[in-house]
Computed example of a mutant assay.
Amino acid sequence: MPEILSPLSVLLLWAVLGYLLGSIPFGVVISKLMGLGDLRAIGSGNIGATNVLRTGNKAAAFGTLVLDGGKGAAAVLIARAFAGEDAAQLAGLAAFAGHCFPVWLGFRGGKGVATFLGLLLVLAWPVGLLACLTWLAAVALVRISSVGALAASALSPLWALVTGNGDTALLCALLAVLIWWRHKENIARLRAGTEANVGRDSRDKKAE
């Protein structure tokens, strides 16, 4: 982790701002604006891009993916510009927590994968790029989105170390633990061989 230079009050401020930014439920907002209904009553009830895709609207899913990733990136960039690297990492973590536990939705949010990738791409772009490539490779190999998320998060601390971004390794490890915990139901289905494949209609399944 980076050297802590900012006062506690400054760090707390950026944690709160990062959380509020991360808690914006773009999937829910986009689905309503595009007349797709309440996303929480569709498929898995998740607010992320994977569940938006179950509405059949690829544009809405892509918009959700970009905005969910963008809010993680924005939290890091803004905190870095006004406070420093220590605040940037904390704001990124808080944005991730905001997506997973948004106050506006009774703390029932998404699984944070897009936000995770977005914040890593601006926090340490080599780590973010390798995490994205890991996700793509895993999904291309097994055609299961959750496997990509689990692989990308699990390997991110290693990518931080091998690319010379060791100060982000602890954050990557913490985010990986949270992502695996958020995917505990997916992991159970993977063990049972019932996890849905990418592109398969799984509106009635509790997939990611």
Results as ranks from 00 to 15, higher is better:
Ile4Met: 11
Ile4Asp: 06
Leu5Tyr: 02
Ser6Ala: 15
Ser6Gly: 00
Leu8Ser: 10
Val10Ala: 09
Leu11Asp: 03
Leu13Asn: 10
Leu13Pro: 00
Trp14Asp: 00
Trp14Ile: 00
Val16His: 04
Gly18Pro: 00
Gly22Tyr: 03
Ser23Trp: 02
Ser23Thr: 01
Ile24Leu: 13
Phe26Asp: 10
Gly27Cys: 11
Ser31Thr: 13
Leu33Val: 14
Met34Lys: 14
Met34Leu: 15
Gly35Lys: 09
Leu36Thr: 07
Gly37Phe: 12
Asp38Trp: 08
Arg40Gly: 05
Arg40Thr: 12
Ile42Tyr: 10
Gly43Leu: 03
Gly45Gln: 12
Ile47Ala: 00
Ala49Thr: 03
Ala49Cys: 10
Val52Pro: 01
Leu53Arg: 08
Arg54Pro: 06
Thr55Asp: 10
Asn57Leu: 08
Lys58Ala: 13
Lys58Leu: 05
Gly69Cys: 09
Ala73Lys: 00
Val76His: 01
Ile78Tyr: 02
Ala81Gly: 02
Ala83Ser: 14
Gly84Met: 02
Glu85Ile: 05
Glu85Ser: 09
Asp86Met: 06
Leu93Trp: 02
Ala94Gln: 07
Ala95Asp: 07
Ala97Trp: 05
Ala97Leu: 15
Gly98Gln: 06
His99Val: 03
Cys100Asn: 15
Cys100Phe: 02
Leu105Ile: 05
Leu105Gly: 10
Gly106Asn: 07
Phe107Leu: 14
Phe107Pro: 02
Arg108Ala: 12
Arg108Trp: 12
Gly110Asn: 06
Gly112Lys: 04
Ala114Tyr: 09
Ala114Ile: 06
Leu117Pro: 01
Leu117Gln: 02
Leu120Ala: 05
Leu123His: 05
Leu123Gln: 02
Leu123Gly: 07
Ala124Lys: 04
Pro126Met: 01
Gly128Ile: 05
Leu129Gly: 11
Leu129Thr: 14
Leu130Ile: 03
Leu133Tyr: 09
Leu133Arg: 11
Thr134Ala: 15
Ala138Glu: 11
Val139Asn: 09
Ala140Arg: 13
Leu141Pro: 01
Arg143Glu: 08
Ile144Tyr: 13
Ser145Trp: 02
Ser146Ile: 03
Val147Arg: 01
Gly148Ala: 11
Ala149His: 05
Leu150Val: 05
Leu150Glu: 06
Leu150His: 07
Ala152Val: 09
Ala152Asn: 04
Ala152Tyr: 01
Ser156Pro: 07
Ala160Ser: 15
Leu161Glu: 12
Val162His: 10
Thr163Tyr: 11
Thr163Asp: 13
Gly164Trp: 12
Asn165Lys: 07
Asn165Tyr: 15
Gly166Leu: 07
Asp167Asn: 14
Thr168Met: 09
Ala169Ser: 14
Ala169Phe: 13
Leu170His: 08
Leu171Met: 13
Ala173Phe: 14
Leu174Lys: 03
Ala176Ser: 15
Ala176Ile: 06
Val177Gly: 11
Leu178Tyr: 04
Ile179Gln: 07
His183Ser: 13
Glu185Trp: 06
Ile187Pro: 08
Ala188Ser: 12
Leu190Glu: 11
Arg191Met: 11
Ala196Leu: 00
Asn197Ile: 01
Arg200Leu: 12
Ser202Thr: 01
Asp204Arg: 10
Asp204Gly: 02
Lys205Asp: 08
Lys206Gln: 15
Ala207Leu: 03
Ala207Tyr: 06
Glu208Tyr: 08
